[in-house]
Design a protein around this nucleic acid. Structure first.
Length: 464
RNA sequence: GUCCCCAUCGUCUAGUCGGCCUAGGACACCGCCCUUUCACGGCGGCAACACCGGUUCGAAUCCGGUUGGGGAUGCCA
């Protein structure tokens, strides 16, 4: 049997970290077995679904490289199928019309709460005579006839076997009074119809599962394998949801994260492969399985994500970073050194692409001001003489980064001071701040002309 | 309230049918080294089996209970 998984988000909120990880696990499972991974947008809640949220789902998954097979499927377009299933159950006596109003239901629940009982539908309409015409003009919903006795077992690939007493499960609504199908019915019909073999989803769906299993059985459909993966909690320990503490996954792209760093981080949140922390995309696909997914919820840890991002930035080919960096740089770089040459000097000192772009900026824009604190610390009485000596050397000799480094060393040695006494002032004058890649590399990239121009302009400014 | 799930360092986790665990790795944190800056890197340190019973020669690993956390309880998905 070929594995077929799906990711079925509802576009009622932004796709966040938790949803992205569910998608990743589902995708990895399918790819690991060479199966299929499909995307199904569950837009049956027309009130809350938005095109914007749908777009974030599509963009987010694309950004992460979680490619889905075929076109995305919109659940709303499959209503006929769902309604047909409801009709079938109705005619087979596996569902019934319920005329209870929202108020009646609320009163019923209130009483149950006070009595300390499980709040569930009491089955008032379950035994009504279907031929009774007195209810003809009253709006109704359709409820599923849930078994009243026995138990329903969920065989979960992550959690193991979980038992639900049937008496705890009430008759759920499968068709709303406006004639639209509800979630539990739609998922079952769609998963079965699409041939989904493994349903990988968040464990917040575990409680729905016994109901869905009953629905599969009532419709005489094959029950898929289930894998409920633990939720991701926010820093406060509570569920991270579209309504609580979540950040749209696309935000991470704007914050300078690499999609693969994101995948690597998300994969390790709940899943492990021995002591390994760093995985390439291929390794993820090769090693991933549901057996090594833990049962406990995990917390989102920004520091570790940052560390992985830094790691993958360091490990990237500079040419693969050019487009992204230039996006964050938002500058015309044609007059300065090639970005592809600048990037390698910054890779090991950037934990995200914004930092990298910020570090590259001075190569293209001369400083308009000099960090006060740095100037105060690095410019002393003898600094001017050292700088003059350096400029004189630069004007007289053949320029190269290596040569410049040598001049600095020679000048400092001759004056009996360490290299920082001259290298730091130069850095501040050309970059505006006391931080840059190694001085020889920086100067080589910046070039003789630009370096001397900035040095002289800076000296003039600081002396006045 | 009721049902369901979970429980190893601050965080992510290793621990696969009990002994090799005086509990390993990673992030973070703290030292030291490297170093012209910022970083990278290297070395070292701090730090956990929630609690109580039981089974066993032996339990982080099995069983029961307690506590704690989470999820669900919708004509949302």
């Amino acid at each position: 049997m070929t594995v077929k998984t799906r990711f079925a988000p509802s576009p009622t909120g932004m796709l966040h970290i938790g949803g992205a990880r569910t998608a990743l696990f589902s995708w990895l499972y399918a790819r690991h077995f060479g199966g299929e991974f499909v995307l199904r947008i569950e837009d049956t809640d027309k009130e809350r679904s938005t095109d914007e949220a749908t777009q974030v789902i599509l963009d987010g998954l694309s950004w992460l490289g979680l490619d889905w097979d075929g076109e995305p499927i919109y659940q709303g377009a499959r209503q006929d199928l769902h309604i047909a299933a409801v009709k079938k159950m109705l005619t087979h006596g596996k569902a019934y019309k319920c005329y209870c109003s929202a108020e009646e239901l609320e009163n019923m629940r209130e009483k149950q709460r006070i009595a300390g009982k499980n709040t569930m539908y009491d089955g008032t309409c379950r035994h009504l005579d279907p031929n009774d015409t007195s209810t003809k003009d009253v709006p109704y919903v359709v409820r599923f006839c849930s078994p009243e006795e026995g138990e329903t077992w969920v065989k979960d690939m992550v959690l193991g076997d979980v038992c639900f007493p049937n008496e705890e499960i009430d008759d759920l609504i499968i068709l709303r009074s406006d004639g639209s199908p509800t979630y539990n019915l739609a998922v079952v019909v769609d998963d079965a119809d699409m041939g989904i073999t493994h349903v990988v989803r968040g464990s917040d769906h575990l409680n729905n599962t016994p109901r869905q299993i009953q629905l599969y059985q009532a419709l005489d459909l094959d029950v898929p394998q289930f894998a409920h993966i633990p939720l991701i909690h926010g820093a406060d320990g509570a569920k991270m949801s579209k309504r609580h503490g979540s950040v749209a996954i696309t935000e991470y792209r704007e914050k300078g994260y690499l999609p693969h760093a994101m995948n690597n981080y998300l994969a390790r949140l709940g899943w492990s492969h021995g002591d390994d922390e760093v995985f390439s995309r291929q390794q993820l696909i090769e090693f991933f399985n549901l057996d090594n997914v833990g049962k406990g919820a995990a917390r989102f840890d920004q520091d570790k994500l940052d560390w992985l991002n830094a790691h993958w930035i360091k490990s990237s080919d500079a040419k693969d970073l050019v487009a992204e960096v230039s996006y964050f740089l938002a500058l015309d770089t044609s007059q300065g050194p090639a970005l592809v040459d600048v990037i390698p000097t910054l890779q090991e000192r950037s934990k995200n692409l914004i930092e990298l772009a910020d570090g590259a900026r001075f190569f293209y824009v001369a400083p308009s001001e000099y960090q006060e604190k740095a100037v105060k610390k690095n410019f002393k009485e003898d600094t001017w003489g050292l700088l003059d000596a350096f400029i004189a050397k630069a004007e007289a000799e053949v320029w190269s980064g290596q040569a410049a480094h040598q001049w600095i060393e020679d000048i400092c040695t001759a004056s009996g001071v360490n290299m920082g006494k001259l290298a730091q002032p130069i850095r501040i004058l050309i970059a505006g701040v006391p931080v840059s890649p190694p001085i020889d590399i920086t100067l080589a990239l910046l070039g003789k002309e630009e370096t001397l121009t900035r040095l002289q302009a800076g000296i003039k400014t600081l002396k006045s």
